[in-house]
Structures are given as C-alpha cells and as structure tokens.
Design a protein around this nucleic acid. Structure first.
Lengths: 233, 233
DNA sequence: TAGTGGTCTAGACCACTCG
DNA sequence: GAGTGGTCTAGACCACTAT
C-alpha cells in the first residue's frame, strides 16, 4: 500500500472508532506531516482524498474537521429546510446574504424560460446546520408575480411566504442534480476555496395553474447531503 | 488572480471555444508545465480543479481528456440504460465484469432488509457511453426470487429479464444519491485511481405485490451524468 | 523503450484567522 | 504575532501504457 493509503486508513480508523469525534478539529497539516514523517504535500493529498470521500471538510483557512452525518434531502417533498433539518434532530439557521433586482440573464433566464427583458429578483441565502454553513441558495423570482416581496423578512421560509401572501402553491417541480465545483460567490459564502467540489441542484417550480413561478439554485457542501427519493410516497 | 486561476481560465477558453474538442487529449502534464513555465504540481492542481468542475477527465495513466456532455438520467423512469443513452443520441454498451453468489452482508444485507443468512446474487457490470467507461453497476438480487438467473445473458437489460422471465414489474423504487470517492473495485473497473470522486446512487426496487425485489449500487463518473427529475411526469 | 500519470521529498512565501 | 491553509518551486522514482 502507498504511504498515502497507509496514512488515510489510520485517520479513517480514528474517525470510525470515535477517537476523532464529529466536528472535532484535526491536527494542522504541518503537525500531521511531522507525525507521519512526510511532507505537507503528501498530507494534503491524504486530506483531500478523505474530503472527497465525505469524511472530513475544511473551513476557510481555519483547519480540517470531521464531517457530521449527511442530511437526507428529498427535493420533491414540500417540506421546507428548517423543518427537514429539525426532523433529523439537527439545528437549522438561515442568513440572508444579498437581494438584487435585475434583468433576467444567463442561466436565470434559461431556467425561467423568459427572454432577457423581464425583471427578476434574486435572493441569496446561506443555510446552516448545527452552525456549519452547508448550503448557498439563490432563489430567482419573476418580479411581476411577486409585488413588494422585498419588503418581507426573507430569512424565513419562502414557501410559506409564497402561499400565505400570494396564494401560490407549488404543484409541480423539476430538478437537476450534478457534482461540479464552487463558483466564486458560493465559495466565499460557504468558506470554501475556489474550485472545491460542490453538489449543485437546480429547481424549477410551477404553481397550481401550471405557470412557471420561480427557480432555485442550490449549492451544497458535498459531504453534508444525501438526496433521498421514494417513488411511492 | 493566482497562476493556477490564470492557467485554468486559459484552458477553459480553449475548451469552450472548441479549440479542444470533446474527447480530445490534453498535452501531457510535463508539456503543460513547460508551456506555462511552471511545475507539474501546479499543473496537476489546475487539472484536478478542471476535473472537479466536470470539464475534463483522466483515464488510467493514459492522460487527460475533454469531457463530453453529461447524460441526463431519471432514476424514477422505467427506461433502461441502453434506451436512455440512445434517446440522447449517444452510443451505449454494457460489459459483464463478475457474477457471484454469496451470503448477504454489509450494505447489501442492509439495503435488501434481510438477515445475513440469505443467499444473494451480485452482478457487476460496466456501462460505456461512446466507448468511455462511465458507470459501474452492482445488481444485487435475492436468490430465492430469481431461480436460474445466472444461466441467462446478463450483459443485456435486467429489467427485461425480470419482466419477461419472472413476471416481475417494478412498482416502486427508492433511491439515494450522494458524492463520495471510488472504492478499489470501482476505480479499477472505470480506470480511475483510488479515491477519485464518483457519484454513488443506491436503488431499491419493489415488485407489483410490494415485495422488495432487488437493489442496485451505481457508481458514476461524476462528470458523465446529471440527475433529472420531473415531479409532474 | 519512451512516455504517461501517481506518488513523494524539502523546502518557500502569501493571505487570512485568532487570540 | 503566531499559526493556519493556499499556492508555488525544482526536482525524484515508480507503475503502467502504448508502440
């Protein structure tokens, strides 16, 4: 077995045995390279490999930590984020990052199936699970369907706002899921460095009359989530 | 911008402009490091970063190639692999790797919800799109439900075999999707090195009477696929 | 046999975080 | 100011692939 493989399995043992509990901080890369009598490059390869497997994660320039269990997420369910997280006995929090109004462009225009002269609102929020930033969400709404929405509290459930204030129910949604890397603004909001892997989910929602209502771009830390779907529900 | 970022965007430009067409081979790491007047380590960081984004992939020790477009995959649809791929104007092929009969254990026993004394068949196959190995599938069947199945041609659609020979229809399925890294046998079958990222999909299928029938573990090259689901279909 | 990526050594400076 | 990860240099040997 390679040196890399040896070190990996030692650290994995420490994690699965609980010697390194969830959320606990690993020794620094320099300490690890001395401990294992190797270089920082090799240690970094080990850590990136464990990160890929979903066992550890890094937070900005602060260090490496053991990943908590994944949240099970059913994108088809009507349940909103806070409820889903609480049902799995975890703590949820949402913070508003930015709100902007703009002319539809790029993937927003494409997802909403509108031309480039329509006005849209883009709401950017970060979601936390147990105080760890795990998800950046961009909600993208057709302005004409949501008058005065910017005057409401946008750190709470948008689903409730859509239903209670505008009378819109989500009748149908389409979504796409694929692994890719974090764009700059996502990396910044989640404390990643540019180009780290994320799981991207694009959703489009239709209201009860079948009209396309809004779309959503979700960027998940890849170790934080597991998509779970049951066709019989 | 960092040197890494500069080199990345230059290569990205070459890809999006078509100068580097799909499936074309990139220059070797050594050549690139001379071209950009930097070291192989930096070039490797660039390439891994582009790989994470899904733009390029590597094949064994042969080199780096530009990724073809992702296949759209709906795990809820009854459509089988070959048909799905053909509908997207790509070419599909399946190769049988191994078949073994064993006592249920580990994640097989767990997924099939049986104790460890039941016999199961495990069918391992590699699927190709346009002659690129993109997917390793492990089908795991309860032996008692599929007498003599090992005598059939297992490189074709199992869905058809289930239906035509045994009269089993999939009435319901559950699945889970999450990013992780390739276990050894998967890496080997797909020509990856150990620990590279993959997208894992676990499926459990129930037949028309509601009985749990089989489960499936799919390991996809992460740049080869996009999960696509429509709740209104 | 020549060329490829995989792995590894032994350093260095920088940007950022935290006490 | 001390410590962290992010980035980068300049080499090396190995396992495997293609011809």
């Amino acid at each position: 077995m390679t040196r890399l493989g040896q070190i990996k399995s030692i650290i994995k043992d420490r994690i699965s045995s609980g010697t390194l509990g969830r959320r606990s901080k690993l020794p620094s890369e320099r300490e690890l390279s001395e401990l294992f009598n190797t270089t920082r490059i090799t240690i970094k390869d080990v850590l990136v490999s464990l990160e890929t497997e979903g066992l550890i994660y890094r937070e900005g320039r602060k260090g490496w930590y053991v990943s908590p269990p994944r949240i099970c997420y059913n994108p088809l369910s009507r349940s909103h984020f806070e409820k889903m997280v609480q049902e799995q006995h975890r703590q949820a929090r949402t913070e508003l990052v930015t709100v902007r109004t703009d002319i539809a462009y790029g993937e927003y225009a494409q997802a909403l199936e509108i031309d480039s002269l329509s006005s849209i609102h883009i709401i950017e929020r970060v979601r936390f699970i147990d105080d760890r930033a795990v998800l950046l969400v961009e909600n993208c709404l057709k302005s004409e369907l949501f008058p005065n929405i910017l005057e409401f509290d946008l750190a709470t459930s948008l689903t409730h706002l859509f239903s209670n204030t505008y009378g819109y129910q989500t009748k149908r949604s389409k979504f796409e899921v694929f692994p890719t890397s974090a764009p700059k603004h996502v990396a910044k909001a989640l404390g990643l460095s540019e180009g780290q892997p994320i799981l991207k989910i694009c959703r489009v929602n239709y209201k009860q009359d079948g009209e396309l209502m809004d779309c959503e771009f979700e960027y998940w830390r890849p170790d934080a989530v597991m998509i779970k779907i049951d066709s019989g529900e």
